[in-house]
Amino acid sequence: MTERDLVIVGGGPAGIAAAIAAHENGVRDILLLERDQYLGGILNQCIHTGFGLGYFKENLTGPEYAGRFIEKLHSLKGIEISLSSFVVNLTSDKTLTYLKPGMLSTIRAKVLIMATGCREKTREMVHIAGDRPAGVFSAGLAQKLINIEGLLPGNEVVIVGSGDIGLIMARRFLLEGAEVKAVIEIQKESRGLIRNVVQCVKDFGIPLYFRHKIAKIRGKDRVEGVDIVKVDDALNEIPGSGSKISCDTILMSVGLIPENELVEMAGVKDVNKIFGREACRAIFKVAKLWKIEN
């Protein structure tokens, strides 16, 4: 079995940054595994601006921001990039099995960095009752359909949750010619950045309902509408406050959860605590460790 000094799983922003940081600190035998056909991860579909303000002092889009790091990565020697590579198994001794078209390989990593990102919570995870028609999308899937595939999911949209992707998609749908009927948020303020509330929702006069939730999805084959209801500060439904909105599309923007299945497979406990800032700290620590050891 081949052994590599460092294996990084995930070629999104975190994985690319980890590879560059490790290289800067002297690591020369790096394998970067990415399941998609290109590097950059979710940044490729984040075509809006707002990236790079801190790092490049420029207001870049996701693909531009990713592109700069990808270019840097390609200029470094000693980093092998394996695309369309899907890790199917990970053991506690850091042995990985991955599939790519035409090949199944097993390798051992001396050091392993998991930069597998996260996935969006679905309608099912927040238990929205009602029918189960076509037309319910996670905001990120809708973003991929519009920005990568050039497909418009629907003409009349209700967005559940005011996370950043949901807010950004409100504007995208509108600019693609759809009508955004409402953004429904159960909390009393937006979960997204205030600038996204301003430039994606308020700019276009899209109604934003706080302290509301979806009681039911209606529609046999395709979404026909939603029943919404007001909630009090304890998030309990307020009787008699229900109303209906007709729409053909529902976007779920209700949060992200870390994609930790592989780490769990390797037997690591409490992985769900390693997320976001914690994960960044972990990567930083690894980079520092390399400096000390080498």
Binding site: L53, L193, R195, Q199
Partner: peptide, 9 residues
């Protein structure tokens, strides 16, 4: 107004 130049808002 809310400034939208950066995520601070």
């Amino acid at each position: 107004l809310t400034c939208i130049e950066c995520p601070k808002g």
